[in-house]
């Protein structure tokens, strides 16, 4: 089980592969569910060129751990990975990676979905988007459409 915040760019598939290479659960898991959040170049405003991701470091770390622990209590997970980016990102950069491993698909899929929704509503991260007109703080989450 691992969760952390990265101040430098993250490579989602490499992180997932690296996590899997450290596991000793080969043969036990039958499902891996992943969510990767990536920066768009649009929001309510067009032509977003960059974004600043701010966080409250001590509380972020505490909440990522709490979410991971809660997911383990709710579902029979064999392993879990949560990595969230902070600092300056540009369109196409990965913002968050979540991966869940379980024996059967339902636990991994449900846990992964729950983790991203809870993270978006609890973990203290904030986004400020910039375009040619300047920077604006994002004021809320989308409903996920």
């Amino acid at each position: 089980m691992s969760s952390w915040v990265s101040e430098t760019s993250i490579e989602p598939w490499s992180l997932i592969a690296e996590q899997q290479s450290k596991q000793t659960i080969q043969g036990e898991f039958g499902a891996t569910a992943t969510f990767i959040g990536t920066m768009r170049d649009f929001s309510d405003r067009p032509d977003i060129s960059r974004m600043l991701l701010e966080h409250y470091p001590a509380m972020t770390s505490r909440y990522l751990d709490k979410l991971e622990q809660s997911a383990r209590e709710k579902w029979a997970l064999l392993d879990c990975l949560i990595v969230h980016r902070v600092g300056e990102v540009t369109p196409g950069d990965a913002i968050v990676v979540i991966a869940c491993w379980s024996a059967h698909r339902r636990a991994a899929l449900d846990a992964c979905n729950w983790l991203i929704e809870e993270l978006k509503h609890q973990a203290p991260f904030w986004k400020k988007e910039f375009n040619a007109q300047g920077g604006e703080w994002v004021t809320g989450n989308t409903d996920g459409h």
Binding site: G37, L53, H55, Y56, A58, M59, R62, H84, I95, V96, I116, L119, K120, H121, Q122, A123, P124, F125, W126, K127, W137, V138, T139, G140, N141
Partner: peptide, 29 residues
């Protein structure tokens, strides 16, 4: 509002040594 890294309320009591943080709705992920 968060007190000592946990969500709290404006009415929540503070004690010596506490850390209280104020912030807008979170928008990570």
């Amino acid at each position: 509002v968060a007190i000592n890294l946990d969500y709290a309320k404006l009415e929540s009591t503070l004690n010596d040594g506490d850390e209280v943080a104020f912030f807008p709705p979170v928008t990570g992920g």
